[in-house]
Design a protein around this nucleic acid. Structure first.
Length: 636
RNA sequence: CGGGGUAUAGCGCAGCUUGGUAGCGCGUCUGACUGGGGGUCAGAAGGUCGCAGGUUCAAAUCCUGUUACCCCGACCA
């Protein structure tokens, strides 16, 4: 681990408990559920003021300042510079990007006395682009990477878990500007630097984290990474390859190759005669499974997407749909569907509109992508996951049994067979090649069908990086996200400059975020026990807590604190006239790495009692003259 | 946004069914005894029962409305 903050040649802070505000409580507020929320509340770091809104008390603010300082040092070392933008953003600034609309209700909006409308910034792409656009006029001034540490606002539909998902939170956001993606000074170079800086930051914060590949941006490749703190209580699921270290979030994770079916995709005889069953009020897989006793893994789940076409595409191709088919116990992955289809954007189809085009949502079968005569419906792509494009079960050595929708309300069918029941034999289908240009839209052909990986990866799926290795899952809390934006914002806001060839070009951007307040909570999620918090040294509010057991020991405690402070150590002196039991309990709750106790026993032998919060070892007496060195060693 | 729930002292809760002087634990304050893992005893302060209407001689309690908050789901750079 890189050098800890305390080792720097500055004087540490010394604080008297009696002079500050540390309201510890035996019981947490009833609305606190997650460990970080409960412990930070009980130990007096934060207090709730409203849904998703928290006071940062002195201890909490010290932790946030320590995290911020680590972020500053690493960002500065990576060539970025700090500034501060307003939190209050005039709505006009969103005119080009339309993000006030895209963000929707997530954006806090307010109106001033003159009727002007504003937003409380959730991120700052627009203000930073506006700033740089107005002050950078030559390619010679690029690249540049600017960051701020600031309070952000998002009107979350459901704030939860204390600091982990608040409506007001502290975030570091950085934005870089370039004239090229590759090469010296390019976006890629800064992106890699940020990746390294983020790893340094989270290491110094003492967090156990995993960088994962996330949904790729417009530039493609691994253009986005999330930094996930590994914690069981995390909201996000990540997948890892134990052999190669490959890690990705559910949205992004690829699934490796598996054995090709022995007879080929779709090939094989039916498992029985097509059998229609009445399934009243059962639109969902779970309902059907319960009602018919057929396992979800023997069902085909058909999900209809609507292609978000541009007006020009609408003109040329009409409304287009994608019918994605996965196994009943699998989840369709929207990003994979979009990429496999080769279109720019998709959305779940509206049930009413789908019904008008002949899709009974909830009861769709692959057959719904065909006309009555078996020909392909115009503008409908049938996208079949590899795990269901089968008619023969190699493992069981018999025809594959499928149940699927009956294409009319309240009916399903058993013994669906791809070759017999699709309408046209898929073996004769012309493979669809998505147009290389996503904006081109779908093309209708007679046999419009693709076999692809279109579902979310699961634990046990083959790794995409190591043959014969299975993916494993873990839970995580997203504390950082780096992203290659490309020209999305510069184009939307008309930010172009002349390059060395005297040609006007769009400025290429990257953005890089760290959830500062979320990192504090994530650390507690990861580092606590039944008694309280266990801070990593790097972000602990104080390095040492000195406890006096009798008031007459306070002068001795102050002398000791001064010696520790001179060594750059931050010290909290618990000078309260409380009983020892209360003080020990509170010390454990607060989670300060080192506890020094001044009591008659130790003082009688001219010693101080030392205990590390993260150790189960019994306290040991250290001679007073050695205590500073002992603490420094313990903290390093 | 859909479903479920809660609102009474700083915190955690009871009281509401069956209307009649506002209760308990923790914490706080005073005093005494204590003094190495939330100590004991004695005393004290602290609440217009979320808000607004209504019913009633009388409402924390019954009725109507409203607001806030929590949980599950949907959503989430």
């Amino acid at each position: 681990m890189p050098s800890a903050t305390f080792a720097k040649p500055h004087t540490g802070t010394v604080t008297l408990w009696s002079g500050t505000l540390i309201p510890t409580a035996r019981e947490a507020p009833s609305d606190a559920e997650s460990p970080s929320h409960i412990l930070l509340s009980r130990a007096g770091y934060i207090r709730k003021l409203g849904a998703g809104i928290y006071d940062y008390l002195p201890l909490g603010w010290r932790v946030l300042r320590k995290v911020s300082q680590i972020v500053r040092e690493e960002m500065d070392a990576a060539g970025a510079t700090e500034l501060l933008l307003p939190a209050l953003i005039p709505t006009e600034l969103y005119a080009g990007t339309r993000r006030d609309v895209d963000y929707g209700d997530l954006l806090f909006k307010l109106t001033d006395r003159k009727g002007g409308t504003y937003a409380l910034g959730p991120t700052h792409e627009e203000p930073i682009t506006e700033l740089v656009k107005g002050s950078v006029t030559s390619y010679k001034q690029l690249p540049i990477n600017l960051y701020q540490i600031q309070t952000k606002y998002r009107d979350e539909a459901r704030p939860r878990s204390g600091l982990l998902r608040g409506r007001e939170f502290i975030m570091k956001d950085a934005y870089s500007f370039h004239t090229a993606v590759d090469g010296p000074g390019g976006l890629g170079e800064t992106y890699d630097k940020m990746h390294q800086a983020y790893s340094n930051v989270f290491k110094r914060c003492g967090l156990d984290f995993t960088p994962v590949e996330a949904e790729a941006g417009p530039i493609g490749g691994s253009a986005s990474h999330e930094f996930m703190v590994n914690a069981e209580s995390g909201e996000d699921t990540i997948l890892k390859c134990p052999a190669t270290g490959y890690a990705a979030n559910v949205e992004k994770c690829e699934i490796g190759p598996r054995n090709a079916p022995s007879k080929g995709y779709f090939a094989g005889d039916p498992s029985g005669a097509l059998d229609e069953v009445h399934t009243p009020g059962c639109p969902g897989i779970e309902d059907v499974a319960k009602f018919t006793k057929v396992k979800p893994q023997n069902m085909l789940k058909s999900v209809l997407f609507h292609v978000k076409s541009t007006p020009e595409q609408l003109e040329k191709f009409g409304e287009e749909y994608i019918l994605a088919v996965v196994r009943g116990d699998h989840d369709v992955n929207e990003g994979k569907v979009r990429d496999a289809a080769g279109v720019g954007g998709i959305e779940l189809a509206d049930p009413a509109k789908a019904a008008a085009v002949g899709f009974a949502i909830g009861f769709i079968s692959p057959r719904a992508a065909r006309n009555a005569d078996g020909s392909a419906k115009k503008g409908v792509l049938l996208l079949v996951d590899r795990d269901v494009a089968l008619s023969y079960d190699d493992a069981a050595n018999k025809p594959r049994f499928w149940m699927t929708g009956g294409n009319k309300k309240d009916y399903h069918v058993k013994h669906f067979n791809w070759q017999r029941d699709l309408g046209t034999d898929p073996l004769n289908a012309t493979p669809h090649k998505p147009d290389t240009h996503p904006a081109a839209g779908l093309r209708s052909t007679d046999n419009f069908i693709i076999v692809a990986d279109v579902r979310n990866a699961l634990a046990g799926d083959p790794s995409p990086r190591a043959a014969g290795t299975a993916l494993v899952t873990g839970r995580g809390i997203e504390v950082g996200h780096i992203f290659k934006l490309g020209t999305k914002y510069s184009d939307a806001m008309g930010f172009k400059i002349l390059n060395a060839q005297q040609q006007s070009q769009s400025v290429i951007m990257g953005c890089y975020g760290i959830g500062v307040s979320r990192a504090m909570a994530a650390s507690v999620e990861q580092n606590h026990d039944a008694d309280g918090i266990i801070w990593p040294v790097g972000i602990a509010p104080y390095h040492v807590i000195i406890q006096t057991l009798k008031p007459e020991h306070i002068p001795t405690a102050k002398d000791l604190a001064a010696r520790l402070g001179a060594a750059g150590i931050d010290v909290l002196i618990d000078d309260r006239d409380e009983r020892p039991g209360v003080k020990f309990k509170d010390a454990d709750l607060l989670g300060i790495p080192v506890r020094l106790v001044l009591g008659d026993k130790a003082l009688a032998e001219n010693a101080v009692e030392f205990k590390a919060r993260n150790s189960k070892d019994k306290p040991v007496n250290i001679p007073t003259e050695q205590i500073v060195d002992h603490v420094v060693t313990a903290l390093t």
